[in-house]
Computed example of a mutant assay.
Amino acid sequence: MDRCGSYLETMRSNAPLVQCITNFVAMNTVANVLLAAGASPAMVHDAEESGEFAGIAQAVTINMGTPSPRWLEGMEAAAQGAMAAGRPWVLDPVAVGATAFRRDIGARLLALKPGVIRGNASEILALAGAAARGKGADSADSVSEAEEAALRLAQSSGAVVAVTGPMDFVTDGKRGFRCANGHALMPKVTALGCSLTGVVGAFVAGQPPLEATAAALAFFGLAGEEAARGAEGPGSFQVAFLDALHRLSPEDLDRGARLEAA
């Protein structure tokens, strides 16, 4: 993809306000990651204000990691508010196949037309109605096994679908990209996947969703590669990762993005 770094440059220039409905474990990490990347996070989830706030934000991200009936009300209100305001919203269907409650939440949120869906292979398979082998929030399926399901889900939902793993796959149902950026230490830090959803939201605010999502995946993965160079383990990696997100330039992303057409 030509000029991958231009999407980072535009995102930072706009510094979009991203409304993040995410789980208890992830809130602090997601907020710090978005700030380091160049966006402005707002952790607004309650139904009393989430729909109204979605009209203020430039993008909304909804992560169903620690759901409850009250949080579901806030998720639905935010998605509806985003749609009414013409704002993109991103769905992160965490462990969507694990329980009947989560399957119902996934179906209800999918019906509200997310612009982007970002999940691991097992989550995308489950959301698409295919057999999946997820272990809680972890994937037991490979990205390649989920590619056909991702294509079908993108075609049926109208969303860009990103399947993340060692080799990411993102598609709008017609075109797609594979992204090879990333590092093995990234899954060792909790909430980095949730944080990626926030970064995708920041990139797609006002930008073409397929290309912007692919650029976000490359940016996030490249930051992981850079952070791992001096890290001794997950603890030092987490700190170095925030620094790398802040430090990476559009030119760095142009040079380091490992994206190819799928």
Rank of each mutant, 00 (worst) to 15 (best):
V200K: 05
I117V: 12
P93F: 01
A31D: 00
A228R: 00
A77D: 15
A261D: 10
F237D: 02
E226W: 13
G136Q: 04
A47C: 12
R133S: 08
M43P: 00
G136H: 04
G165H: 07
A146T: 08
A111T: 14
D141I: 06
N63I: 07
T61F: 06
L109H: 04
M167I: 15
W89M: 08
P16V: 03
K188A: 05
R255I: 08
P166I: 09
A223R: 07
F220H: 12
N120F: 02
M83W: 12
L210R: 01
A212M: 05
E232Y: 05
D172C: 12
L192C: 10
R70N: 08
G106A: 02
F169M: 09
R118M: 13
S157C: 13
V94L: 04
N23G: 06
L17T: 01
S40F: 02
L248D: 06
T99Q: 05
R108K: 12
C4D: 12
F220P: 10
S6E: 14
L17K: 00
I56C: 13
F219S: 06
F203V: 07
H183P: 04
V170G: 05
G86A: 06
Y7M: 07
P209Y: 15
K174T: 15
E123G: 00
R133Q: 13
N63D: 01
A212E: 04
A132G: 00
M27P: 02
M167S: 15
G119R: 03
M43C: 12
S157D: 09
A162R: 06
A131F: 10
T190G: 02
G97F: 04
A244M: 10
A84T: 10
N120R: 08
E232K: 15
T10G: 04
A137S: 09
A36Y: 09
V204S: 10
E148N: 14
F203T: 07
M27E: 01
A39V: 13
G119L: 06
G5K: 02
V60W: 00
S144P: 10
V116M: 14
G230I: 04
E9K: 10
V33E: 04
N63W: 01
A228H: 00
A121M: 05
C194G: 09
A31Q: 00
S13F: 10
M64P: 02
A240S: 15
V30Q: 02
W89V: 11
R229V: 09
F237P: 09
A191T: 06
L34E: 00
A128C: 14
N14L: 11
E148M: 15
L72R: 07
I62C: 06
A184R: 02
K113P: 03
A261P: 13
S50K: 11
A223Q: 03
F177Q: 10
F220E: 13
E145F: 05
A140W: 11
A218Y: 00
G74I: 06
Q207W: 08
A184E: 03
V163P: 11
D46Q: 08
R133W: 06
M83I: 11
A26D: 01
G193H: 09
P114Q: 14
S195L: 12
A184N: 01
A214V: 08
A150M: 09
G129T: 03
A131L: 07
F101K: 05
D252N: 14
A31E: 00
M75F: 09
D92R: 08
A47Y: 06
G182M: 05
V143D: 04
P114K: 13
R87I: 06
A77N: 11
E49H: 09
S40E: 12
